[in-house]
Amino acid sequence: MEWLQYLVLLICPLMMIFCMKGHGHGHKHKDHESHCSEDTNTKMSKLEFENEKLRNEIEALSSMVKKGS
């Protein structure tokens, strides 16, 4: 029964190795990072554009309120 204890101890690291290999860790990491970076830059540009648009609308509304006073 001593071999059973060793088998149980070896199962965990072996399963981890096979699971990590199955997920393909480390092979496409750089491609994924550059894709995420481009996606983030695109989202940031859209947010900056929307922010500028909202500022212009606020400015226009402020000037309308001042004229009405």
Score class of each variant (00 low, 15 high):
Met1Ile: 00
Met1Leu: 09
Met1Trp: 11
Trp3Tyr: 07
Trp3Ile: 00
Trp3Glu: 10
Trp3Leu: 08
Leu4Tyr: 05
Leu4Trp: 06
Tyr6Cys: 00
Leu7Glu: 07
Leu7Gln: 06
Val8Leu: 15
Leu9Pro: 03
Leu10Ile: 04
Leu10Met: 09
Ile11Leu: 15
Cys12His: 09
Cys12Tyr: 11
Cys12Gln: 05
Pro13Arg: 06
Leu14Val: 00
Leu14His: 12
Met15His: 11
Met16Ala: 14
Met16His: 08
Ile17Lys: 04
Ile17Arg: 03
Phe18Glu: 06
Phe18Leu: 13
Cys19Ala: 15
Met20Arg: 14
Lys21Leu: 11
Lys21Asn: 10
Gly22Glu: 05
Gly22Tyr: 04
His23Ile: 00
His23Glu: 11
His23Arg: 12
His23Asp: 09
His23Lys: 13
His23Val: 03
Gly26Trp: 07
Gly26Asp: 03
Lys28Ser: 12
His29Leu: 09
His29Lys: 08
Lys30Tyr: 10
His32Pro: 01
His32Glu: 14
Glu33Gly: 02
Glu33Leu: 14
Ser34Cys: 03
Ser34Lys: 14
Cys36Ile: 03
Cys36Asn: 10
Ser37Met: 09
Ser37Ala: 13
Glu38Gln: 12
Thr40His: 13
Thr42Asp: 15
Lys43Ser: 08
Met44Cys: 04
Met44Thr: 05
Met44Pro: 02
Met44Tyr: 13
Ser45Val: 00
Leu47Gly: 02
Leu47His: 04
Glu48Thr: 02
Glu50Pro: 01
Glu50Lys: 10
Asn51Pro: 00
Asn51Ser: 06
Asn51Thr: 03
Glu52Ile: 01
Glu52Arg: 06
Leu54Arg: 05
Leu54Gly: 02
Arg55Ser: 05
Arg55Pro: 01
Arg55Ile: 01
Asn56Arg: 15
Glu57His: 06
Glu59Val: 01
Glu59Ala: 10
Glu59Arg: 06
Glu59Trp: 05
Ala60Ile: 00
Ser63Gly: 03
Met64Trp: 05
Met64Pro: 01
Val65Glu: 07
Val65Trp: 02
Lys67Cys: 01
Ser69Glu: 10
Ser69Ile: 03
